[in-house]
Amino acid sequence: MKLHHSPGVLVVTGLQELNATNAASVRDGVRGAVTSEVTGVDIDLSKTRFVDSSGLGALIAIHKLMLARGGHVRVLNPIHAVEQVFEVTRLNRLFEVVKI
């Protein structure tokens, strides 16, 4: 996972999977990188081939954190299979899923 800041936005890239083995570390890593200037988190899922319910849990934790700070979370370019997981769990309503 790579994290970098563009003005006001924390961009998360390089996630190959988001599952029970790494969900907690992704969640904590992002939490730690959300500084006071950060008003949005963009999570790039274009290279992420697998997301399970634990991975969704991490995304929700990040979402709650940002919601509390008045910010927002976007999910960028999920592959078809991952997008379906969002749809099945109806979390596509919660997250802004952006395809660029």
């Binding site: 849990g57 929700i60 099945v88």
Partner: peptide
């Protein structure tokens, strides 16, 4: 059933049944 949107867990069984 799906848990409330802000719940960080509890979706596994729903996913299993849905698929």
């Amino acid at each position: 059933e799906l848990p409330p949107d802000d719940s960080e867990s509890g979706r596994g069984l729903f996913i299993i049944q849905a698929l």
